[in-house]
Design a protein around this nucleic acid. Structure first.
Length: 153
DNA sequence: GCCAACGTTGGC
DNA sequence: GCCAACGTTGGC
């Protein structure tokens, strides 16, 4: 059964345009156990995800991607020069894992957080919960389809 | 830049 | 195991 996700990234760091250019990328740098566990335990190749631009002006949904490789160790955790370096990670115990995602499409229209908030059928999204900062969130097919429809002309 | 909310750390 | 202090996230 295909699952649906919302994955946040700051466009300053890596945007939907970067993903469009690269085609595929590893979703590295996740350093939160709950988000990691979604990638390790729940995500399957073929799942679809909304690419969400956080800390953007305005924040919102920028496009769609698909999971194209199941979770494997995040090498940035063992790279001393990376800002995601974690001294507790080692080859025997990588701690941090990530999936690979591939570009599907950039929305014709950016769907801002404000619009998401104002759409009744999206009102139960985890994203809209107060203080919710989890960077990878499960969403329903209904959420996914609704946002896709808003984003595609 | 501010700050509320959250997760993590570390002393006890 | 508690919890205060701290660092981070992310909207505004």
């Amino acid at each position: 059964m295909k699952k649906y996700w919302l994955m946040k990234c700051e466009p300053n760091a890596y945007s939907i345009d970067d993903l469009e250019k690269d085609g595929v990328t590893d979703w590295n740098g996740v350093r939160n156990y709950q988000a990691r566990n979604f990638m390790m335990k729940e995500m399957k190749v073929g799942d679809l995800a909304i690419y969400y631009h956080s800390n953007a002006t305005p924040p919102g949904a920028a496009g769609i991607m698909t999971i194209c490789k199941e979770a494997y160790p995040d090498s940035s955790a063992r790279d001393k020069k990376s800002k995601y370096y974690d001294p507790k990670a080692c080859d025997e115990k990588p701690i941090w894992y990530h999936v690979d995602v591939s570009f599907v499409k950039k929305f014709d229209r950016y769907v801002s957080l404000k619009e998401i908030r104002e759409t009744p059928s999206l009102s139960d999204m985890m994203l809209l919960k107060r203080g919710m900062r989890l960077s990878i969130q499960p969403i329903t097919k209904k959420h996914f389809d609704t946002i896709s429809k808003m984003g595609n002309l």
